[in-house]
């Protein structure tokens, strides 16, 4: 029972981590909470569904294409809705409100186009369940966990071992200094939004496949939980988002299993508030010092 819950928790935790990465990367560079990220995740889920369903493309083409489109949407959101405000030198409040506007727009736009109901997801992979020593494990579950871990390792390597990753890290330290060093920071920012959105799209497709459901308001609850995961791990920290995602998934599943199913969503939110109150820098985050 416990091991079963643990594995289920890791599965959903991996998905939270993928979304949390988008929050944390954008926060690391721009120091804003991208409210629209949860809804980009939702759009990503729908993109995967539509492409796989209507075009009859094999999923190894359809899903990467969905990732690409979602990445583009993410970049466009930054381009159209955040960059002009940023370059005006407006305060953080203005960007925050704009991000909120994007989130509301996407949620309601999606409801208009796809209706408020839950859509069944395409199941191109035959679901098989294995039973190992009393623990049930589906091939999809294994796929989700393996894919999440692979993507995180790739992202970790990109951020820490490549030139682009170095530019990203430099930009997150100080945009002005990075510019002085000849880094095209606007490109770095666009790339950050692109990568974060593509990861969110993967998460959307995985949630769709795993739970066989996607709906326009899915981004609201998943977005909030992934944000809680990012905070738990320490916002701005890439390994932190991964750790936070897995931890949150495990706590939530164990809590729902052992304490009460009705309060499933309350765990994530409770953790969020506790972390904000007692350790705002999270588990792996650095303490924030204002420069004067």
């Amino acid at each position: 029972m416990f091991v079963q819950q643990l594995i289920n928790g890791i599965t959903v935790g991996g998905i939270y981590a993928l979304i949390a990465l988008g929050y944390t990367m954008v926060y690391g560079i721009l120091k804003i909470v991208n409210f629209a990220h949860g809804d980009v995740f939702m759009i990503g889920g729908f993109m995967g569904l539509i492409l796989a369903q209507t075009t009859n493309l094999p999923i190894w083409i359809a899903y990467p294409l969905a990732m690409l489109i979602t990445a583009l949407i993410g970049v466009l959101i930054e381009r159209i809705c955040y960059r002009p405000i940023r370059l005006h030198g407006a305060d953080a409040l203005a960007i925050l409100i704009s991000a909120l506007g994007v989130s509301i727009f996407l949620e309601n736009f999606a409801q208009l186009v796809w209706g408020t109901e839950t859509h069944a997801y395409v199941q191109k992979i035959q679901r098989t369940a294995y039973n190992i020593a009393g623990i049930t494990l589906s091939n999809i579950q294994i796929g989700v966990i393996v894919l999440c871990i692979i993507l995180m390792i790739v992202l970790y390597l990109v951020v820490n071992k490549t030139k682009m990753g170095m530019a990203m890290r430099a930009t997150s330290q100080s945009i002005t200094s990075a510019q002085l060093m000849g880094i095209n920071t606007e490109k770095v920012i666009a790339l950050t939004f692109g990568v974060g959105s593509a990861l969110a799209c993967v998460a959307g497709i995985l949630v769709g496949t795993y739970y066989d459901a996607v709906y326009p308001l899915i981004g609201y609850s998943y977005g909030l939980k992934a944000f809680a995961a990012a905070i738990l791990g320490g916002i701005g920290s890439v390994p932190g988002a991964m750790l936070g995602g897995f931890l949150l998934g495990i706590v939530e599943t164990l809590g729902a299993g052992y304490i009460s199913t009705g309060y499933r969503d309350a765990f994530a939110f409770g953790i969020l508030i506790l972390v904000l109150l007692f350790r705002p820098s999270g588990l792996l985050g650095k303490k924030h010092v204002d420069k004067v």
């Binding site: 407006a90 203005a94 506007g101």
Partner: peptide, 10 residues
Amino acid sequence: FGALMIIMMI
């Protein structure tokens, strides 16, 4: 309302 917030902020 969503669009309004974005447009106003820009």
